[in-house]
Design a protein around this nucleic acid. Structure first.
Lengths: 265, 265
DNA sequence: CGCCAGATTGACACGGCTCAAGCGGTGTGG
DNA sequence: CCACACCGCTTGAGCCGTGTCAATCTGGCG
C-alpha cells in the first residue's frame, strides 16, 4: 500500500482538495480553509472493517481519501445491500449533519484512508458559513439524484443493465476525482461487493461480467477494468450521466467534463 | 371533490401548516410567515396530468396540499418507475432548490391541489433565513433516507415484502399529516400505480394485495385500506419506521408519534 | 505445501413477468 | 333506458430471468 502511505505522509490538506465537498464551485477560499482546518488527522481503516456501525450514534463525518467503502443495510433473511459505493473524495456519512444516528453502516471494502470531521464542527460550519451550508445542501440533493437512479435501476432494469449502468457511473465519478485514466480504472471490488450493490448474486455478476467481456464492451486485467466501447455500454445500461449533475462542477475536471459532454451530444 | 374545494376556499395558509417543511421544529414563527407569504395561489391539477415534465427547467417548487402525486422516471424498454409517492404536505420537487433541472417528472395520480413556491424565492429564503436553510437540508436528508430504504427494498425484498413495507410506510407518513384514522387511510391509487412504485406488475400486485387480505393483515373497502394486524404486517415487510426520522418532528403528530414508538418498543 | 478467499461452471427450482381472457362498475351517447 | 366502451380488477397458464445448491479451479499467502 505504498500509494496509501504516500498520501498519508503528504498530509490531508492536499488530499481534501479533491473531495466532493470542496469541489463545489460555491465555495470561496475562506470556506475551504475553514473546512480543511476542521478536519482531524488521517486514519487508516483495514479492509472489511466497519468504519461506522449501523444504527449507532455518529459523532463525526468521514471523508474518504483513499480506498473504496460502501454504505450498507442488512435485511433479515434478505442479506446485505449496498445503497452507495464510496470512492475517494466522497463523504461517507454526510447525512450525519442532519441526524445524530444513521440507518446504515459504513464498511471499508478495501483498506481506506479517511479523515474525520467532528459532527458538531460540521454543523457549526454549515451554519456560520452560508456557502458551506449551500454546498452541503447541493451534495445532499446530488446524492438524492443518484439514489433515485439506483432505485429506478433496481426496479426496472435487468441485472445485465444494472451492472453496465454501474460501470458507466463509476467511470464518470472516478474521472471527476482524477482516478481514471482514459476509459479504464482500478476496480478493487469482489464480485460479491458488486452483487450486494446491485441486489444480485455472485454467480449472476460473474456471468454478466463475463458476458460484457466476451461482447467486447469491457476488458479486465487484474483489478483494472477498461471500458472498450463506451457508447455501446451506455446504450446497453441505459446510462445518461445527467443525473450525476457533474456539469455543475467546473474546477478540477476540465477536459474530462468536456469528454463526458461530447459523448452525449 | 367537495373536500378539495373546501380547502381551496379556505386559502392555502392554513393548509401549508401541515406541510413537511413547516412541520420542522427548527423553524420559528417568522420563518413560517416568510415561507407562507412566498407561496403563490392554489392550483388544481387533474389526475393523470404532468405537474412537471421530466428533464425540463423548473422555475418553481410545488407543495402538495391535496391528492396524491408521484415522481416518475421512464426507462426505454423498461417502462415507468415511481421513485417517490407524494402525499399532502410533501414538496414534490424540493431538489429544484439546488438544481434548475430535474431528472424526473411529477405526475398527478389523483386530482391534486398544489401551491407553487417560485424557485428564486425559495433559494433566497434558504439563504436569508438560516433556519429555513437548515430545514430544507433536513428534508433533503430525510428524503435521502427514504430513497435508500426503497432502493434496498427493490434490491433485497420480494414483491410481497415490498408491498407490505410500502403500506406500513404510507400509514406512518399519512398519520404524520393527519390523513389517517386509526390504522386505516384512503388509498386512491390503482394497482398499476403501486406496481410502478414497487418495480413490479399489475398482476403481481393484485395477487399480493389479495394475499395480504386473505391472511387478515389488511382489509380493503372501496378506496379505503385498513391495516388489521400492524405488527404482523411490519414483520412481514421488514418495516421499522426509524428511517423516516419522524421522531425529530414534535408538533402536530402528538399521540400518533407516541403510537408509532409504542409499536416498536 | 496447504489453506483460503474469490472466481468459475453446471444443474435445477422458483419467483415473478408475459400473454391472454373474462369480469364488473361507471360514464356516455344514441 | 339501454348499448357500448373503457378502465381497472381478477384469474389462469406458461416461460424466462435469476436465485440456490454444489463442486471445482485458481492465485496469493503464511
Amino acid at each position: 500500500m505504498t500509494a496509501v502511505d504516500d498520501r498519508r505522509t503528504a498530509g490531508h490538506a492536499s488530499m481534501l482538495a479533491a473531495s466532493r465537498l470542496l469541489l463545489s464551485s460555491q465555495l470561496e477560499a475562506a470556506d475551504r480553509d475553514a473546512l480543511t482546518r476542521a478536519c482531524d488527522d488521517v486514519r487508516m481503516v483495514p479492509a472489511g472493517t466497519d468504519m461506522v456501525p449501523p444504527r449507532s450514534p455518529v459523532d463525526a463525518l468521514h471523508v474518504l481519501l483513499e480506498g473504496w467503502a460502501a454504505r450498507y443495510k442488512v435485511i433479515e433473511y434478505g442479506g446485505r445491500y449496498l445503497p452507495a459505493l464510496l470512492v475517494p473524495g466522497d463523504i461517507c456519512d454526510i447525512d450525519a449533519i442532519a441526524f445524530g444516528r444513521l440507518e446504515y453502516g459504513i464498511t471499508a471494502l478495501t483498506e481506506c484512508a479517511v479523515v474525520s470531521l467532528p459532527r458538531s464542527r460540521a454543523v457549526a460550519l454549515s451554519q456560520s458559513h452560508p456557502n458551506i451550508g449551500a454546498a452541503v445542501r447541493w451534495l445532499a440533493f446530488a446524492e438524492n439524484s443518484i439514489l433515485t437512479e439506483w432505485a429506478t435501476a433496481m426496479g426496472r432494469r435487468s441485472v445485465h443493465g444494472r451492472l453496465a449502468h454501474l460501470l458507466c457511473e463509476l467511470l464518470v465519478r472516478l474521472k471527476a476525482v482524477g482516478r481514471a485514466e482514459g476509459n479504464s480504472f482500478e476496480l478493487p471490488l469482489t464480485e460479491e461487493h458488486l452483487a450486494d450493490a446491485l441486489g444480485s448474486t455472485v454467480i449472476q455478476i460473474n456471468r454478466t461480467l463475463r458476458l460484457l467481456c466476451s461482447n467486447g464492451l469491457v476488458a479486465r486485467e487484474g483489478q483494472r477494468l477498461a471500458i472498450l466501447n463506451w457508447s455501446a455500454l451506455c446504450t446497453f445500461g441505459g446510462f445518461r450521466p445527467d443525473y450525476l449533475y457533474f456539469e455543475d462542477i467546473h474546477e478540477q475536471s476540465g477536459d474530462d467534463a468536456l469528454w463526458i459532454k461530447k459523448s452525449f451530444h
